[in-house]
């Protein structure tokens, strides 16, 4: 199973599309590793610097409709090779969400109010997330506070995470 704990990268915007996560011009790469330097290269958020802000981060916390646009699995791969295995958002585009679990990674939805609180309490501070998958809990922590937040995830998605993705899962069954 992948690692779902670590430093948070806050992206305070909705509708971040896959062209922003990994621009189309890098789709000519035939290896995942080659995508590493280009993650979020075209993301337009004020003061966001893709060269600096991604370093050391393991979890993204963002707003609604993350990963809309193209079906490219290069988007989750670009996250994966940068050590980011979990995205927490208000909602996801279908294909992106499925691609994450298909790769054994997690795309976790939280209610809007919960996300508002998380942004208000943690954004702009060094924040850690710990994921207790069996207990269905997320623990957010910075220097000032700690919050335990219920994590809701479908049984099928948990199976995919445990199997390490859809290829492994399907191969043993179909």
């Amino acid at each position: 199973m992948k690692n779902f704990n670590g430093q948070v990268l806050f992206l305070d915007r909705s509708d971040i599309n896959t062209d922003e996560i990994i621009p189309a011009k890098y789709l000519t790469e035939n290896s995942r590793e080659a995508l590493r330097p280009y993650l979020l290269e075209d993301l337009s958020i004020e003061e966001f610097d893709f060269k600096k802000d991604i370093v050391g981060k393991s979890v993204i916390v963002t707003r609604a409709n993350f990963g809309c646009g193209s079906s490219r699995e290069h988007a989750p791969w670009a996250l994966e090779v940068n050590g980011i295995h979990m995205v927490i958002a208000e909602s996801f585009a279908r294909i992106f969400r499925q691609n994450m679990f298909n790769c054994g990674m997690m795309a976790i939805e939280l209610p809007k109010e919960t996300l508002n609180d998380i942004f208000a309490n943690y954004a702009g501070t060094p924040t850690q997330v710990a994921t207790l998958l069996e207990d269905r809990k997320l623990i957010f922590q910075n220097q000032k506070r700690t919050d335990t937040i219920p994590l809701s995830i479908a049984d099928f998605d948990v199976e995919l995470v445990h199997a390490g993705g859809w290829v492994n899962y399907a191969d043993t069954r179909y």
């Binding site: 079906s71 490219r72 699995e73 989750p76 294909i95 992106f96 499925q98 691609n99 298909n102 790769c103 993705g165 859809w166 290829v167 399907a170 191969d171 179909y174």
Partner: peptide
């Protein structure tokens, strides 16, 4: 539309 893993399976 699907991602590459779905395509692979």
């Amino acid at each position: 539309g699907v991602g590459t893993t779905d395509l692979e399976v």
